[in-house]
Every structure is written in C-alpha cells, then in structure tokens.
Design a protein around this nucleic acid. Structure first.
Lengths: 163, 163
DNA sequence: CCGGCTGAGTTGAGAAAATAAACCCAGGAG
DNA sequence: CTCCTGGGTTTATTTTCTCAACTCAGCCGG
C-alpha cells in the first residue's frame, strides 16, 4: 500500500487543464482577452474583479504561458504593459465556446444570448457569417453530436465518457 | 451614473455557466460521472476531495439540474442514493473534451494522454473506434479549426472571440 | 519644481471557502 | 448487543477572496 496514493483520476489532462485555468476568474479573464481586452484597468472594469486578484491571475496566466505581457507606449505616456493571449491561450477557444453554448442552452438570459460567435474567413478560407458552434467529431469525420454514444478507450488509465 | 453598475461582460452565458460548474472540483466530479462513477465513496476515493465539500458540490449539482439522485439497494443492504448525470449534465461533454484536448496538447503527462475518447455507434450510426475531438464549425458547415478567425457578432452586448 | 492626475499595481484587514479530521447514524451481519 | 459500512455532519484550521486604502513612476499644467 502506498503511503501517498496519488489519486488516480486526478492525474489526467482535464485536471491538469483545470489546475491552470480552473481558478475563479481565470476563464473569464481569458474570455475578455478573446474579446480584445488587453489592459489591466479594462479587465478590472469589465469583470469587477479586485485589483490584487487580477494581478495575481494575470501573473499565473503569464507564468503558465496562456498570456504574454507586451510593452506599449501611448503618445505622451510612459511605457506600460498589456496582456495578450499566446497561441496556447488562443487554443482555449473551444473551451470557451463549449461553455458558452451550454450556458446559452440551459441558463439563457431572458433577452437571449448576448454573445454570438461568427465564422470569419481565415487566409484561403470561405468567408461566411454563420454562428459557430462546437461539435464532437471522430477522426473518421463522423459528427458525434452531444447526445451520442462514446466509449472509453481500452487500455490502462483510460477514463471518461461512458454512455 | 448607476449605483450598482452591473458589470457588463460578466452577464454572459460563459459566466453563467461558470457560476454553475466553475467552482473548484465541480468539473472533476462531472468528469468522474462521465467515467461511470455514481457513488459518494467512489467520487471521494478517486478525487481525494473532502467529504463535506463533495456533499456540498453534489447538492449544488443536483440543485442546478446537472446531476440527479437515484435510489438504489444492493442485495442485503439498505436503500441508498447514487448520483447520475441528467441530460443537462451530459451536455457538458464538449466542455470536458475541450479541456481534455487542451490539456493533452499543452500539459501532457510524460506517459502520453491517459484518456482517449472514442467514437461509438449510436442508434442508426456508423460505428467506428476513432478518437473523438472537439472542433468549432459554423452553421454552414465550414470547419473552423482553432487557429482560425472568428469575429464577434454585431449588435449590443456582443462579445468574445476577436482574432 | 510643485502638486495633481493616471495606469498599474501593493498592502492589509475582514469575510468566505477549502481542507482535515473527528464524529454520527441507520441498518444489516455476526 | 456490538461491530461494520456507506454516506454523510461538525468543528477547527488554513487558504482564498473581497474591499478599501495606499504606493509608485512618470507626464502635465502652472
């Protein structure tokens, strides 16, 4: 028997991801960043978060490589820093969109969804203005919509998603 | 000037979703539930969570309709309760898969992903064993893979996802 | 060159939440 | 009876959050 059993399931990518972005406020800060917010005071005003907590969260986001401090200087101002998502942070988009979609479905504001994400043409892509949603699909290209069946992978340490 | 300014961005589906599933442990409990865990003691053993917190979290998950208490009775045992996901809880799967995918990409365990989600045939579907991933796609069917461009919707209160 | 202003934080006190560990309680088994 | 087990409470301690006040560096106007 192990003295420190190293709880099985906690050691998986979901919990590692949540260790980075699962703290109170963290995903909201990332959401604001997706929305174009870059400056300390703007995060603060839009989220209503305490300044010491915001400073702490931004520090850990920078430490974990989700955001990056970039210097800027406004005309007639001194040099300051703002915060932007790194590619690693940008890859959190599906997480936010999935949460958004779930929230819209089950916790909708009486006035309807206030946030709509739309498709915009990337380089060499077809532009369209359709709303974007998150779907599960398998590598063979079958769309596996949420109320579907999935099964856990065989092998040791396999977890998650039992119908 | 409003005495209680009602911070703009906080009132969106992402924050409403996080208010329900954004507390410490909550998504891990849901993940265990996807993995087939149903009983108090099993959640406790697998997560290493304190029993009072687990009780509190399960209560709020039941209150918010993500999970459901179902009675059961083992042969030669008394009636007890276990916890299962409701359809609303099952719809959180894309959130978990998105987190899993992000964690696998950036915080991988040296031994590789311990969790692989595979496609299983639903009723009237083609079965295959391919790994499942989460993708963003627009209503017109264009696959909008994470490093793409999206734009915020026009109109008041629109947020999120500025390239 | 003095005082005020601004953005970006620190510091510190008090409230709320998490952790840890002991305890309880209903029923079945021995 | 007494013990055991699953599913929790209670209580104490530690950590986090919140709120409010304060600092600090530099530009600006007088």
């Amino acid at each position: 028997m192990d003295a420190q059993p190293r709880i099985s399931s906690v050691n998986c990518s979901v919990s590692r991801a949540l260790a980075v972005v699962g703290e109170r406020w963290t995903l909201l800060i990332v959401r604001e960043a997706f929305d174009g917010v870059r400056r300390f005071a703007d995060f603060r005003a839009r989220l209503g978060i305490a300044s010491n907590l915001l400073a702490a969260r931004l520090d850990t986001l920078v430490d974990t490589g989700v955001m990056r401090r970039v210097p800027y200087r406004e005309p007639g101002g001194r040099q300051r820093f703002e915060y932007e998502l790194t590619p690693r942070g940008a890859d959190l988009r599906p997480v936010l969109v999935a949460l958004l979609q779930w929230g819209d479905k089950y916790l909708a504001d009486p006035e309807g969804p206030s946030v709509i994400v739309r498709h915009r043409a990337g380089p060499g892509e077809t532009a369209c203005e359709e709303p974007v949603r998150v779907v599960l699909e398998c590598a063979a290209g079958h769309s596996a919509l949420p109320p579907d069946s999935l099964r856990r992978a065989p092998g040791p340490g396999a977890h998650l998603i039992e119908p």
